[in-house]
Design a binder for these strands. Structure first.
Lengths: 210, 210
DNA sequence: CGATAACAGATAGTTCTACTATCCATTATC
DNA sequence: GATAATGGATAGTAGAACTATCTGTTATCG
């Protein structure tokens, strides 16, 4: 198909597709002549994934590009690709290395240790967690161990549920794609469900009439 | 204190503080003369909360302003203020009302119904959830009921754990502030823990040696 | 008291992100 | 053969979140 149809099918404007091609977010079509290229179903699909990650998942273009690179990197097992893509999804922010930060890192290490989780030092989730904990400290909100432990237990259940869901996927490419999509959208879904649950709990608490 | 000290104490540059004052993100200091104003501990505190919501929580300035407005609105119960602030934290995106969207809304309603949760129609979490589910549909990822139900159960546990934590707070202002901070940072913490759990599970699965 | 520094407020400028728009020389298509 | 579409290059735009500069005071310190 040509670019106009690709645009129609993917609901992405032509100039935006060109922009994605320029910035290597989308792989090029097969050239048939000096000013013609053929696009395929794979392009449509890729554009849909890109839009989902950006619009719904809230990823930046840079993060999305990295995720896609890792996702479809050849010569890696599905699990490794998914893992690498996972890493690219975490927004890294520069860290202020003060006393609070040190404390938060220790707290993070202790938590993961206590849980017995095997999480590499390179996993950006560690840093992300530490910076949230550091922020709680700075705001005088002592992050109670119990609450963190509860959160962790619950997070593990969520991860188990979604990995069980993914286990049904036999095709490696489909597995990686599903894993990435679920990681990105899972955050959104979970966040929404948490807020919904909060309202329900508060409602029951203030006007108990079960 | 004067603005230089406020800047030092809050670690926010003076021009940024001025910008926050201009845009009413930060309430003004008490004027003592034509070009002097006094700032208080409350200003320091507020700036720290603002930076936490923006930098760690990832809120936009507009969302942050709304959250703060609702948070400290007078004449409301702590629970109501926290609820309103909660609503302002969800990023609303324009919705494409196609067939997929309709289906996702039905799915969302059915889910909340099945769970028996009391969630108002105005809660933006509904829309957020529906748009994530619609995206899954569009990507051909059938959102299995079981997984959504599992997620919901887990989200409820997280919400219960954090509300139990908040229940200890007797001062209404402190309650609202804690609620807002935990809602914003909870997303980050949970997301990080989920990714950490994913790595642990995958590690155990591919090289089981407990 | 006077020099220097700090201040509030106004206005303008900057950087980054994520697109949009325009143009041109081809190439398709009717 | 006229019209439309295309790929690629270049430039422009809109919004967000600051950052800088300027002006006319007001503090403060020696």
């Amino acid at each position: 198909m040509r670019i106009a149809e690709l645009s129609r099918r993917s609901e992405v404007p032509v100039p935006t597709i060109k922009f994605y091609l320029r910035t290597e977010l989308l792989f090029p079509g097969e050239r048939t002549s000096h000013n013609q290229a053929q696009y395929t179903e794979a392009h449509v699909r890729r554009l849909k994934v890109i839009r989902a990650l950006i619009e719904v998942g809230g990823l930046s273009i840079a993060a999305t590009r990295e995720v896609l690179e890792k996702m479809y990197a050849p010569g890696m097992s599905a699990v490794d690709s998914a893992g690498k893509a996972q890493f690219a999804m975490v927004t890294q922010r520069p860290v202020i290395e003060d006393e609070t930060w040190e404390r938060a890192v220790k707290e993070t290490d202790a938590l993961l240790d206590r849980l017995g989780w095997q999480v590499r030092a390179t996993n950006p989730a560690r840093q992300s967690l530490a910076s949230a904990i550091a922020t709680l400290y700075r705001l005088g909100q002592t992050p109670q161990l119990k609450l963190l432990d509860d959160y962790a237990k619950v997070a593990r259940q969520a991860a188990e549920a979604e990995l069980a869901h993914l286990a049904g996927e036999t095709d490696p490419d489909a597995f990686v794609e599903s894993a990435v999509i679920w990681t990105a959208l899972g955050d959104v879904i979970f966040s929404a469900l948490r807020r919904a649950a909060q309202e329900d709990i508060v409602t029951r608490f203030t006007s108990p009439q079960e």
